[in-house]
Design a protein around this nucleic acid. Structure first.
Lengths: 203, 203
DNA sequence: ACTTTAATGTGACAATTGTCATTAATCGCT
DNA sequence: AGCGATTAATGACAATTGTCACATTAAAGT
């Protein structure tokens, strides 16, 4: 047997970070070499520690897991990124694959599968949570950037006037954007549109 | 030293459940005697296994952690319940205290604090996440039941007409409820009202 | 029996939102 | 310069929402 698989963890939820570390350290062929609680920190540690695997959450402060994966991909590090997230959203998966990740797992999965997934990825395979494989061939995000931004603000309860100020647009234009977003998503108002978009991971 | 602290875990996120188990089993004075992935299952296991501590999430399928705590309290089990949740919402904490829980911790906390918190609770202390202690003396939930229900549906993007049908009320009445909810929460529309209510844990 | 109180409904009006057709300005491209 | 595409704005109108004053009804006290 060769040297153990060196793993770097990135997860902002302190408890899960520590617990994952305990879990993986139980595996004789793995070794957690570092723990980061945001994306930026993880990137820096990856450069120093040269892990084989970077296991990261998506939603983290400072830098998201997706951005992190993109940076790793563009660097000279030969570190395989595995995403570990709560959200079974097809939009996230698509963006993650574009960023070159090797695995996309859900926190819902039983914990004993994790170590195996890591080993498979080390062998060069890709591991995608089964719940998502079907979804993956779903529609692409139809929203424009402006539509997305307006929808986000609307979902917070801001009204047209305020959204317009925030986006440096006229109220009329904002209503146009929200209207077109709604029609693209087959929603009957901005709130429903936001809900749908969020559920698909487009928001 | 006496026998180890017997712990039952309830958590629907499979990965965290397994990882927590690994983490706690590292402590020499603790022993995880059971793992449940929903509230109902946890209640049944608590009756069979008689753990000293029940460590549970709030948001679980079938039965929430709060309901679970209430059942335990009303039973003859002398099992101390500790809530472990992502959400720093004062409403949740209040309801949890009413249900007689002995601890309320956040998943954000560093993992090494968990074992200590459990030991403290075993000694009869109460452990509340510091972020929440300030919040705890905040305002009580001002919403009526109908207001809450209407707000929930509105937050989904349903419009007055549909909400009215769902609640067997006239559209006018629904608008009245939403209006009064908004004014109670100092919101300027139903969406903002829903956002505020959700943030406080009232929804 | 006679208030009181809470829950529900109505109607009216203003404000906000949704929809659409049309126009204007800007940019890249040939 | 001229063409299409993109982005932003306008105006008009209908629909939905927010607000409030005011019935109506049915318990719940006293």
């Amino acid at each position: 047997m060769t040297s153990p698989i060196k793993i770097l963890l990135a997860e902002d939820q302190g408890l899960l970070l520590g617990a994952l570390c305990a879990l993986l350290d139980l595996e004789p062929d793995m070794q957690v070499v570092g723990k980061a609680s945001d994306g930026k920190q993880a990137l820096q540690m990856a450069r120093e520690l040269r892990p084989d695997i970077l296991l990261t959450d998506i939603e983290m402060p400072v830098m998201t897991g997706i951005e992190l994966a993109r940076h790793i991909q563009q660097s000279d590090l030969c570190c395989k990124v595995i995403i570990l997230t709560t959200f079974a959203r097809s939009g996230y998966l698509r963006r993650a694959m574009d960023a070159g990740v090797k695995g996309y797992l859900l926190k819902d999965a039983p914990s004993d599968e994790l170590a195996n997934a890591i080993r498979r990825v080390m062998q060069g395979r890709k591991m995608i949570a089964p719940e998502l494989i079907v979804d993956a061939w779903e529609e692409a995000d139809p929203l424009s950037d402006k539509e997305r931004r307006a929808l986000k603000l609307a979902a917070d309860g801001q009204q047209t006037e305020q959204i317009a100020r925030a986006m440096h647009l006229s109220p009329g234009t904002v209503r146009n954007y929200l209207s077109s977003a709604s029609s693209k998503l087959n929603a009957s108002n901005r709130i429903e549109a936001a809900r749908i978009a969020r559920q698909k991971g487009w928001l």
